[in-house]
Design a binder for these strands. Sequence first.
DNA 1: CGCCCTTGGTGATCAAGATCACATCAGGGC
DNA 2: GCCCTGATGTGATCTTGATCACCAAGGGCG
Lengths: 240, 240
Amino acid sequence: MRILHGISRKRQPPAAASGGGKLALLSETDIFRDLTPRDMEEIERVTAMTTCRRGKVFYTPGETGEVLFVLKQGRVNLFRINPDGKKLVLTSVDAGTVFGEMSLIGQGMHDTFAEAAEECTLCVMSRSDVEHLLVNKPQVALRFLELLANRLSEVETRLETVAFKSVPARLAAEILRLTKGTPDERVDGVSHQDLADAVGSYRETVTRILNEFRRDGLIELDRLSISIKDAEGLKALAES
Amino acid sequence: MRILHGISRKRQPPAAASGGGKLALLSETDIFRDLTPRDMEEIERVTAMTTCRRGKVFYTPGETGEVLFVLKQGRVNLFRINPDGKKLVLTSVDAGTVFGEMSLIGQGMHDTFAEAAEECTLCVMSRSDVEHLLVNKPQVALRFLELLANRLSEVETRLETVAFKSVPARLAAEILRLTKGTPDERVDGVSHQDLADAVGSYRETVTRILNEFRRDGLIELDRLSISIKDAEGLKALAES
DNA sequence: CGCCCTTGGTGATCAAGATCACATCAGGGC
DNA sequence: GCCCTGATGTGATCTTGATCACCAAGGGCG
């Protein structure tokens, strides 16, 4: 019996393709994939759906209650701010997953904020609804387990990266990550400051390194836009 | 209804105090705390208990199968090795918890090794036993969820620390962490190299900084031994 | 006792990247 | 067109801490 297996980490197809109704959106979420249509309707009844504009910080520790977010469309950054006001993105969450677990389980989200990195559509579930679900639908709890295990593994790798790799290597990896899934190998709407926050560095340093990348023919630069010219070269750099 | 609440992060009392039998040891594990004595006997039947000497690397990715470890006594370091052979300790696991989840759920433990940081007693559960348990005892799955959530939160904090804080600050924090729980505020059996691996730095750097700490009256040094003189001072330093 | 191996001490050097200080530049609003 | 703001380009330092090169001390063991 092998009840546990890797969950998909691929970006979900654009929700528009599936109609975009709330129910359809919820069904596409990994965590709920074992539920019956009837169960899904039940969840749908108790779930609020909202949208967030790019840049909106919609979760602030302390201010926001204990809820679970289900990201339907867009991308969300979970980040912390250190005493000097410097920001570090802990994780970038793609559509089809869930976040905010930390506020429900254990010690809470600590000092973690959440912002919409792109236009987002998300659902909000209350603590009691989630608890109910976890107790009554063991399959959901198991999916949740997978999700957390994968997130943990991801953050551990990130820790290793920050501890051992140079800023150029981290930056190359981040660019590859952001463009992964985009057919034209290009990111838009990401400033140098955003990249600095993501790799744990500084704006000026990022600007300099990006220009070196361009000089080396690895990427093409434009205002708020990066397109990849030599993915292999970047990959090599990312390995340090 | 509040079924989820923080699990204890306190170090377990020495197992000798509770007799040290396998059954007693297993019952002290957070993850199993909701099980009945009868359930525990069942688990006890299928569990192998072994010991490891300090320094022993008992889990190697690839070589070791998919198992779950329950740490009964001692301390275990989970670490990775980068291509240059440099080691980084991802987590230090204390008695009473479980690890190896990653090999059961999701993508596996990747390139993570496990070594006994002290004399250790641990139990090993097979994949199928764990899966059986998770499916049939929802309470265990929930405890597992708590465990993972806490671990995640811990690694995120570590990531922030490595990204933003100086080596002295990280070192101060690590010393405080290691001595936490010891009544005489003192660690033994930890070399400068071990500390370097834990904070993601280098032996020479650690030696230099420790000597600065001593000069500043923060700690006392001896071969393989550090004792704290000024916990407040260290705490201040750890905040950067 | 002499050997050797692990641990710790320290100087010298160097490179990465943080930090400061401005200069542009593009776009939006009025 | 003008002004303002956010995004980017770049030079000039300055520190941190990695890296190299040894040496010394402690301790187990034949």
